[in-house]
Design a protein around this nucleic acid. Structure first.
Lengths: 397, 397
DNA sequence: GCTATTACGCAACCTACTTGCGAAATACAA
DNA sequence: TTGTATTTCGCAAGTAGGTTGCGTAATAGC
């Protein structure tokens, strides 16, 4: 019920049809016109028009070479040209920079990880991010012009204008137009987003919560924050601050910066390790910790009624120490005949970069397909395997 | 990106245009074709076609009688015929039955309230609801056939099939097709919904949270539950159980049925009254209670990041005893440079019926306008005033 | 080289919206 | 009373984008 003229809406239909054909080719492989007609339910002339538009944009290639068997005129086969464009998902955190580069078809063509301290200077840090993205492009042998979009996950609150508002990690980026500067350097739009939200989205789209529309993701590291995906959509909140659980939300001892206080050890990981080794102090502290987390998990579960709760961060591998007790607590205290399941992250440290990548696909959709709400492609490795590692060793936080 | 043929989509455009004209007439009063052309941005023939469709359905009337001044051919004036259909919002609770009846234009034509115990028998209770709705129709002098939709708020969990799953209030309705039975009796679709969710929606659309897209509503009575409106949409949850805060979510002493335990008085209302009168026990208990509520409010605020928090129920008038301390707690404990505001319900006991009415408008939209996502009309009284009482005495819970 | 088969590509048609204009109905002035 | 200005009406013609349908091209197999 918008106010646009009809001309717009009608041509929106054309765009939608074109996009439908493009997505079919992207997600189900090359196809002849006849097959597309069949698959999309559109008519032949419409499909032909769509293909000719797409071919003009370079997004599909139509070649005759097809090992067709059987009688009949050989079909003209259209193929989605993923390499027409690339998008990057970037995770800039204290531990370093991660970049995942994928083409429009979802083939992951580079995945790099630069460990170690980032430059302390705001500008130098921007340059480091640029260098990391460029390095990924170089590794994948992708001309820089082909990069269509880069999306960056950082810790902190991102304002509507895309600048950081509050960030403990990179305080000197607050108010700075990091995205704009990188856009100028890279020649394509670059946007920032909150890291935990991206990780949540990644787990929902690619990780532990695939096929589930409602989930809460908890990232437990030195702090605890959450990300919500509700009805398949990332919840941002009216200040883009949903999930920023402060001091008072978590029933776990925190210091004044919101970091979890450990007495028996210097980190959650260490405390859990000691508890596993039988250290009594650590065991008690871990138990209190788990109860505190369970508390918050339960309140949010009851308020939000998700299908699934995913725990990320270094502790997510601690099944019997964390995930199992949480599951029990949630199932036990449920006053209703159902309870959400608690599960460990599947993407591990890569979740933020994958989330950024998946948002990058969303954000380039309008310019690539002329339509938004385009589902991202399935991610594949160059060798054809699943781009998401089987639950392996990518959990070194 | 659905699979429907194009024929469908194209005619969807026609429907949308027709709906646009209808809504313009509904919300901005009678207008000539020329004015509609101007207002909708559509072309004259399109508007004419829409009006002729609408006139055929009886949804608009075109009469020439118009006190037009000035030169020129007098315009044919089209007027939205609200009385073409009626919808009802019903609140069936322990305290009785409330019905609000409105026509399609949003004119509230009846509003009745049957206080007192409902029949203990499941079927008799259904009959009582039917009788209440019929009574509203009779009072408003509306032929029963004109009732297009009735939506009913009840306490309890409603399943996807519209039947109650768990209801402490009306346990004998669990699994019973209450909506279907009423539909058969009334000759129009009748659906059930959770009362607190409806109240939340009502406050967002008509009450304390108008113009706000993200809000959390807490209904504090003998129990505490919540309703969430996120991004302007009612949050249901994957089991339609969002907001069903159980024992463990609320840091307030509860009995085994989830009812708030009061030692200094027999109800929250009484405890607050005594505290206001200076009773020391009550004051202490009220303080603990408020702190417990604040606790939950804060966790949910931080997780969800709403604009506004609305408190409903008998305590919502206790500004200085409840609302003010909550506001302070939320503002104080915020770790971020903003905090949601806490505000009292505006609709009071009517919130559930108003919520039901507002959903009834939504649910009849498809069949009336051929389009969903039609905003509900502004509610008006027959005399033209605002149908929502100015914060008056409708708070006798 | 003939036939069966299959996909192609275009012509004709349909739906629904737009632009544009002559005609109708009024107010007002001569 | 009649003419003119004004405003809206209602239809005719045009456009965009889709669909159906059919003649034709290109191949495999006999």
């Amino acid at each position: 019920m918008e106010s646009g003229t009809h001309e717009h809406r009608v041509s929106a239909l054309r765009k939608a049809n074109t996009a439908r054909c493009a997505l079919r080719l992207r997600d189900h492989g090359a196809a002849s016109v006849a097959e597309l007609v069949q698959a999309t339910g559109l008519s032949r002339p419409t499909v032909e028009a769509a293909l000719s538009d797409l071919a003009a944009n370079g997004l599909v290639a139509t070649n005759e070479s097809n090992g067709h068997r059987g009688a009949g005129r050989p079909a003209r086969v259209a193929r989605f040209v993923g390499s027409a464009g690339y998008v990057a998902g970037v995770d800039v955190g204290l531990g370093g920079i991660r970049v995942i580069l994928a083409d429009l078809a979802g083939t992951v063509s580079a995945r790099i990880e630069q460990r170690g301290e980032l430059p302390a200077d705001a500008s130098a840090r921007i340059e480091a991010v640029r260098a990391a993205i460029s390095e990924a492009l170089r590794l994948a042998d992708v001309p820089p012009r082909r990069l269509l979009f880069a999306h960056i996950g950082v810790s902190g609150l991102v304002r509507d204008d895309g600048r950081l508002w509050v960030s403990h990690t990179f305080a000197d980026w607050e108010g700075v137009d990091v995205g704009g500067k990188l856009a100028a350097l890279l020649g394509c739009p670059v946007t920032l987003d909150n890291d935990v939200k991206l990780a949540a989205l990644a787990e929902q789209r690619l990780g532990a919560a695939r096929l589930v529309d409602d989930m809460i993701f908890f990232l437990i590291g030195s702090q605890i924050s959450a990300g919500l995906v509700l009805d398949g959509k990332l919840r941002r909140g009216s200040h883009n601050a949903a999930g920023e659980l402060g001091q008072s939300s978590i029933r776990v001892p925190l210091d004044e910066r919101g970091h979890i206080l450990w007495h028996s050890a210097s980190s959650a990981r260490e405390a859990f390790a000691r508890a596993a080794d039988g250290d009594a102090d650590a065991t008690a502290e871990v138990q209190t910790f788990v109860e505190g987390v369970a508390d918050t998990v339960i309140v949010l579960s009851q308020a939000i009624d998700p299908d699934l709760i995913v725990i990320g961060g270094p502790l997510s591998r601690a099944g019997d120490q964390l995930i199992d007790p949480l599951n029990e607590a949630v199932a036990h205290l449920a006053s209703l005949p159902f309870a959400p399941m608690v599960r460990a992250s599947r993407l591990g440290v890569d979740s933020i970069a994958f989330g950024a990548l998946s948002r990058a696909f969303d954000l380039c959709a309008e310019s690539v397909y002329g339509v938004d709400d385009v589902p991202m492609p399935l991610l594949r490795r160059l060798d054809g395997g699943d781009a998401v590692d089987a639950d392996g060793e990518n959990f070194e936080w």
